[in-house]
């Protein structure tokens, strides 16, 4: 009960921050529209998918990352700057409930932001859904939210103030989004180092574990560990992404301070 109440509390706070609502919910949708209009909603060369079919899931993932990584880290650091975290620790509310409520709240926001892009894509730009792949798409989205929340808490724990958190989240997400099949459509002859970097970090794995569920040219339901280029294989990608998330959460739990000037 307390957990749900606190989650609702965090959602209320989010809805009263117009800038946050804009960046997390509206931005991915606007970028989706811009990309589709800019490139035209035709088949991407040498693939069987349209511009919208690629960009809808990619920007849904981007929205989820904005919510679970960027917004979670910045808003938590802001609460810490405000002394709210310290004050909460002086009440009988269990710290774990408070943190999980923040994570649940951003997960709800992430799913809303992702759904918005997908539904607009489906209704207005012919983005197709494939029922046999949808369960894995939802699992990927949910696990991606938790993994990036773990990383968001890690960034928050590393940095002293919300200003630093803002800089670090932007400096990590934006460059990676260009390399990780989020902002840029797949094209031929990608330099090998780009692939290496992108394969090391979790964003590409998130965008493809989710995005490949919306590809007509990929078979299966995603619940496989290996397969050719024609197979939807989400499990290895989810494993790498989760490893990042768990590591982030572990470091966050070790380093996180409720009061940077104090001892808790």
């Amino acid at each position: 009960m307390l957990l749900l109440r606190q989650t609702q509390h965090q959602l209320t706070l989010f809805l009263r921050r117009p800038a946050a609502v804009f960046f997390v919910v509206a931005m991915p949708l606007i970028m989706f529209l811009v990309f589709v209009i800019l490139f035209g909603n035709e088949l991407i060369p040498e693939t069987e998918i349209t511009t919208a079919q690629f960009y809808a899931p990619a920007l849904a993932v981007f929205g989820a990352v904005m919510a679970c990584y960027t917004y979670l880290a910045i808003s938590t650091a802001t609460s810490r700057d405000q002394g709210v975290l310290k004050r909460i620790r002086g009440t009988p509310l269990k710290p774990a409930i408070y943190i999980w409520a923040r994570i649940l709240a951003v997960t709800v926001i992430a799913i809303a932001a992702a759904l918005l892009v997908m539904v607009v894509g489906n209704l207005f730009f012919g983005v197709a859904f494939y029922p046999e792949k949808l369960p894995m798409a939802l699992i990927s989205l949910f696990l991606g939210c938790l993994s990036f929340a773990g990383l968001g808490m890690m960034v928050c724990a590393f940095c002293q103030t919300s200003d630093t958190v803002q800089a670090v989240t932007s400096a990590t997400v934006l460059p990676l989004a260009f390399l990780s099949d989020v902002f840029i459509r797949p094209f031929r002859d990608v330099p090998v180092w780009v692939t290496w970097i992108a394969d090391t970090f979790p964003l590409k794995h998130f965008s493809l574990a989710f995005g490949h569920a919306f590809r007509s040219d990929m078979g299966g339901s995603g619940f496989v560990w290996a397969g050719g280029e024609e197979t939807y294989t989400a499990l290895p990608r989810l494993a790498i992404m989760l490893a990042w998330g768990v590591a982030g959460a572990f470091i966050a739990a070790k380093l996180f301070k409720w009061d940077p000037k104090g001892e808790i």
Binding site: T12, L13, S79, Q82, G83, V84, R87, G90, P92
Partner: peptide, 18 residues
Amino acid sequence: LRERIGIVLQTTALEPEL
């Protein structure tokens, strides 16, 4: 113990949006 004490910190700690 926290259930039985009330705390007012030296610096303000409130959520301005509420």
